[in-house]
Each structure stands twice: as structure tokens, then as C-alpha cells.
Amino acid sequence: MLEIKDLRAEVGGKEILKGINLTINSGEIHAVMGPNGAGKSTLSYVLSGRHGYEVTGGSVMYDGQNLLDMDPDVRACSGIFLAFQYPVEIPGVASATFLKTALNAQRKFRGEEELDAMQFLKLVREKTKELDIKDDMLKRAVNVGFSGGEKKRNEVLQMALLEPKLMLLDETDSGLDIDALKVAAEGVNRLRSPERSALIITHYQRLLDYIVPDFVHVLADGKIVKSGDKSLALELEEKGYAEISAA
């Protein structure tokens, strides 16, 4: 599904990703762990196509297409979803309007009928219920005045609604209490299928108790320095990044 080869990228003229190699097959869940500043968020932004993150080398293929040639909205419509580490506040745009516009943009892209207000409301109510999110959030402006936890839940809600093929979660667990964490994990697990994959960036092994990864990678200083199965996460927790990276 996703094939990253020797990916190099700069931000503000500084090389942050220094040759990443990573292949994610359909149905697999990969976790990426690593110290602050390692380049984890940078990787997620490069994959989702943010301006200012300049790819200087390597390639990324997604479903047999050159991902790096695609605009961010086309990537999203093709099934890539980034749950932001820091979700953006958008004053003046109601959450419901935003969700409906996004969902219909994606449906339109896929040649599907757009949902009308009633159909949308029914769908979104189902999802908020599943994820234990209060409906009044839909009336509020996108992320404005949301607590850290609410923002993260909102990301999970969007993911549940858009049903992406490749979920990129950037520290979705930080700022969540254990109940919220379970709900978020449940959101990912519910989408889990042989056709869907995920790349889960996290600091803590805690999340991986609920979303069990097939592979765990350690990202340090812009490179994947170690890969393994889920036991690597436990090992990391015990020994810390320094020792693993040095090994």
C-alpha cells in the first residue's frame, strides 16, 4: 500500500528526514516511536503533503502511484488521513459544516452521490454515539475552545466519518486520559480491516496495548534506526531511546 524509499526532506532549509525506508502492506499496523524532534511529525506532514516540507530525495508510492505528485486534498480523497498532533482551530467554521463539506468532497472525488443534510446528520450522529462525543460539538467552530482531549476526539471522529485506507495518527494518545484513549483506540480498531493500514506515531507503549501493532519502528534523527515486532515497544519503554538508538 505504501512504499517509502530513502525519503529525504527539509524544513526551512534544514534536513529533517535523512533517508527513511518503510513499507506498509495492506492490513498492517505500524507504530513509529522516537524521541522529540526525531522527525515523526515531519514524516506525517510529508506524507500528507503540507507546504514547506520539501522532499529532497527518495520516493513514496501509494497504491502504485507517486504520492509526492499529489495535492493534499487529492491524497485525502485517495484515502490518506492524518490525525494531527496539534489539530487546528478554525474560527467561524462550524464543525458540522466542515465535516459535511469534507465528506462530500471525498464522495464527489470517488464519483459517489453527495449526502444531503439529513443523511449526513444521521451518519454523524451514529459516529458521535460510538465515540462517546457530545453532539453539541458539531455546532461549535472547528476545534475552537476545545480542550486538548476534545481536539483529539474530534480527530478520531473525522477519521471514523471519512473511513480512510491509510490512517496516520500523530500522537493522538497524548493529552488523553485512559478512557478517552480506549475510545480512540476503539476508533482505529473498528476501521481495522485487511484493506486498511495504519501508521501510529506515539511516545508511549500504552496506546499499543489497545491498538496492537504488527511492526514497531524507532525513528531517531531522521532515520529508522531499529524495527521489530510489538515487543520492541516494551523494550523501548524499559530502556529508553538512547540505548536503543545507540545499539
Binding site: G49, P72, D73, R75, P87, I90, G92, T101
Partner: peptide, 29 residues
């Protein structure tokens, strides 16, 4: 706001439409 623009695009909304949404939001109140 570039961040807001990217956030909308990252959800599948084309840039032109995302810009319109943000301009309308600016005028909204």
C-alpha cells in the same frame, strides 16, 4: 491562515473551496 488551509485540504477539500470557506468564516460574524 496557512495551518487552517492545510487542515481543510488534509480532509479532502480542494484548495479553492478551502479558501472560500475561510474567507466566508472571516466575514461571518
Amino acid at each position: 491562515d496557512d495551518d487552517a488551509l492545510f487542515y481543510l485540504q488534509a480532509r479532502g477539500i480542494p484548495e479553492l473551496e478551502a479558501r472560500k470557506i475561510l474567507i466566508e468564516a472571516f466575514l461571518g460574524d
